[in-house]
């Protein structure tokens, strides 16, 4: 029995670089993840931080196997899921879910909220679906009559709650949250973050929280992975990372956060 939910070893992933594709022959590969090693313990909240192009979102999509790595391995709860086919993955899929950055594009505009939340449950053959949709809406603090609304009728914060409801409805063990508050106003941002924190505690979830914002990550996460150019430059517990950052890039990131305080020496 291992209490490591995820074990990632020497993970490599590349994309075809269509911008530099020669007239004849295959496109060159663009290395996005260059040998990552880390674990995610059961019940923890891990933050993944980095600039654009650091590979943090690609890593996230590899963890929930929206992308297939080139080499290395991802073990989920002791099982190697690195190269499983979609059919082999399907029974396991229910155990790791994802919440997306842009709630507008991640909710099918032609479905009502009820259908959006119920869809995944139907796929996995769950029973009492209607009751479960109500439960999920209760959990994220949305009124039950929202089931008959379309995504475009909701505010940004409400849409993101629907995204969360859809993810938790399957009762997963792991949730990946990819920049889920970066499109929201600070007031709804705080609500969504608090909600996520409560859910993790109440439902005993393991969470990986991808963000470019260290302030947000500090609020939520017990451990932080810092990425730059497809590599992990630092992986430390949150207090240590802020008090004694080891990597130059981590120091740069921390120094770049503008505190809401005019007396902070910043420039």
């Amino acid at each position: 029995m291992s209490n490591l939910l995820y074990q990632v070893r020497d993970l490599h992933l590349s994309f075809a670089d269509m911008a530099h594709k020669p007239l004849i022959g295959a496109a060159p590969r663009l290395q996005v993840l260059k040998g990552l090693n880390f674990d995610i313990p059961q019940g923890s909240i891990v933050g993944i931080v980095g600039g654009s192009g650091s590979g943090k979102s690609t890593l996230g999509r590899a963890l929930v196997r929206l992308l297939e790595p080139d080499s290395g391995s991802i073990h989920f709860d002791g099982r190697d899921i690195t190269h499983l086919s979609e059919d082999e993955l399907r029974p396991t899929r229910r155990r790791f879910q994802m919440i997306f950055q842009d709630p507008m594009s991640s909710l099918n505009p032609r479905r009502r909220v009820g259908g959006i939340i119920a869809g995944p449950m139907r796929l996995h053959g769950l029973d009492r679906i209607s009751a479960r949709v109500d439960d999920a809406l209760d959990h994220v603090g949305l009124p039950r009559d929202f089931r008959s609304r379309y995504p475009h009728e909701l505010s940004g914060g409400q849409r993101q709650r629907v995204g969360i409801a859809r993810a938790i409805a399957l009762e997963p063990e792991f949730i990946l949250a990819d920049e889920i508050v970066s499109g929201l106003d600070v007031s709804s941002q705080a609500q969504v973050l608090n909600l996520l924190e409560d859910l993790v505690r109440d439902l005993g979830l393991t969470l990986a929280f991808i963000s470019h914002d260290l302030s947000v990550i500090r609020r939520l996460c017990s451990r932080i992975i810092v990425m730059q150019h497809g590599r992990i430059v630092e992986n430390a517990a949150t207090p240590e990372l802020f008090e004694a950052p080891l990597a130059e890039y981590t120091r740069e990131l921390i120094a770049a956060i503008p505190l809401p305080d005019p007396d902070q020496v910043w420039f």
Partner: peptide, 30 residues
């Protein structure tokens, strides 16, 4: 402003802004 916003909404907005220097814990939504 940053020493103490006069309006309740401004104060709430400031309280909802995350600060990495503050200890880990719940944010105050507006």
């Amino acid at each position: 402003f940053f020493n103490g916003p006069a309006h309740a909404y401004s104060a709430a907005l400031l309280a909802a802004t995350p600060k990495y220097t503050a200890p880990t814990g719940s944010l105050k939504p507006v």
